[in-house]
Computed example of a mutant assay.
Amino acid sequence: MEDFVIKFDFAWSWIGLGMAIVFFVLLFFTDLLRSDLNKPRWQDAGWYAWVAAPMYMIHQFEEYALYYDVHSLHHPFADMICQKVGYGAYPNCPIPLQHYWLVNIILWLMAMLGAWKFYKTNPMVALAPYGLILANGLLHIGGWLSSGNPLYYYVSGGTITSMFLFIPVTILMIRACLKWKVMSGWAMAATLTAGLIGHIILFGAYASLDAGGVIALYIFDFLAMTSPLLLTWLASKWLLKPKKSKLL
């Protein structure tokens, strides 16, 4: 089991990169993931719903794979997380490596589920991952600016994709939604806030480790990554206008 953990800890971010490449081919060279062929991709809010998952996969590749230490067989980024929350570096850190896989893979699945199942009926749910994307991007950039570290440094892992993917794409998504009245400004604010709440829950996951052990950590991981979709679904009851049915 330990051998599998070590191997998958190396492999999962590379798996994400491979999936991201497939997604980007579909997104940019086919019309399969577009919701409105009468608009350019950059103005199609449904297209942005599909962009979220592969964009996060690229971000996670920067965080983990680019800085992987083949000699110690671990991610320096995970060491940094442990030290930030008050634990020592691995192997003394009690946060299981499975935590990182769980959080990130659940996010992939939730983003793809939202884009596939909800965009036509509930764009708030479909675009909920952008709240996590925006919060995470700003956290990376703010942390890098305050640290004084070089941009290409493991403590700054994720900052490059935050600057050149997360923030610009989120701005373009907001512009497309508001321009074509996919949702109101209040609905957009609620969508992004739901992701911020998910990020706050994720911080609570680390505190739960001391109180409830690994099982509590995994429960918080699941809640953190699924709460944006649940919260936007609830908020949409008040903030999304029901679509009028067409008369036959």
Rank of each mutant, 00 (worst) to 15 (best):
F220S: 14
C93E: 00
M110L: 09
I219Y: 03
G198A: 14
L109F: 12
N92D: 15
I133N: 07
I200G: 07
W186P: 05
Y87A: 10
S156I: 01
Q83V: 09
G142K: 14
W186K: 15
G114Q: 12
M112I: 15
K120R: 15
G143I: 04
L102P: 02
P123L: 13
V125D: 02
A115W: 05
I201S: 01
A190Q: 02
A115Y: 05
L151Y: 07
Y90Q: 09
L192V: 08
G195H: 06
S162W: 00
V169L: 15
V214T: 04
A128G: 09
L172A: 15
T170L: 04
G86N: 08
A211L: 09
M188S: 01
Y218K: 15
M124E: 01
L109R: 09
N136M: 10
G212C: 04
Y152G: 04
S156E: 01
Y152K: 12
I171S: 11
Y100D: 06
L165E: 01
Y119P: 07
C177A: 14
Q98W: 15
L209N: 07
Y218Q: 15
I133R: 13
K117H: 09
P129Y: 07
F166A: 14
F203I: 11
I105V: 15
S184I: 08
L97D: 06
L107N: 10
V214H: 01
P94V: 06
T193D: 07
V214M: 02
Y130M: 06
L178N: 05
I167P: 00
S208M: 11
T191N: 11
H140W: 01
M163S: 08
A135Q: 12
A207P: 00
A135R: 10
C93F: 00
A216P: 01
F118S: 05
M112C: 12
N149A: 13
N92Q: 13
F118G: 02
M173Q: 02
M80E: 02
T191S: 12
I167G: 03
A189K: 07
I171E: 03
L209A: 10
S147A: 14
A111T: 01
